[in-house]
């Protein structure tokens, strides 16, 4: 299932709405990297609240997204990792090293406002 990406001010917000296949994750990565340029976005939020698992492929792909978007000159925040998912990732040894995560969308937006010096509404 394709992940909808909303543009809000100078940010892009991708909200995962169901379990994602590997192809869906790759599609999300490519769409975000392309749209950061098209919309001249300063920040990207990926909301994974509804994601059922963060396995090695999901973790690796989201790390790649954040790294690619940073190379494109924007900031990425991953928000909404659920307690069970965080527990499972930690036991597996999966980390999102060097990637900003926040509790939820609200925290993610306020992080981006501080980090990019821009606001979500304008």
């Amino acid at each position: 299932m394709e992940v909808p990406i909303l543009k809000q001010g100078s940010y892009l917000i991708a909200t995962v709405q169901s379990a994602l296949s590997d192809a869906d994750l790759v599609q999300l990565r490519d769409a975000l990297v392309e749209r950061v340029g098209r919309f001249r976005a300063r920040g990207v939020i990926i909301d994974v609240t509804a994601l059922d698992v963060m396995d090695s492929f999901a973790t690796g792909t989201l790390s790649d997204v954040a790294q690619m978007i940073r190379l494109r000159g924007a900031e990425t925040v991953i928000v909404g990792i659920q307690p069970d998912v965080a527990f499972s990732m930690t036991h597996m040894g999966l980390t999102l090293q060097g990637i900003t995560t926040t509790l939820d969308l609200e925290e993610g937006l306020s992080y981006l406002e501080r980090a990019t010096g821009s606001v979500s509404r304008r």
């Binding site: 379990a19 994602l20 296949s21 698992v53 069970d84 499972s88």
Partner: peptide
């Protein structure tokens, strides 16, 4: 892959595994 992990989560829940372990099984 997605179907298999969802079936696993459902079966784990039916068997009485707490959500945290059902997530581990799905992963």
């Amino acid at each position: 892959v997605v179907t298999a992990r969802m079936r696993g989560r459902t079966l784990a829940a039916q068997m009485g595994f707490p959500p945290i372990l059902a997530t581990i099984i799905a992963t």
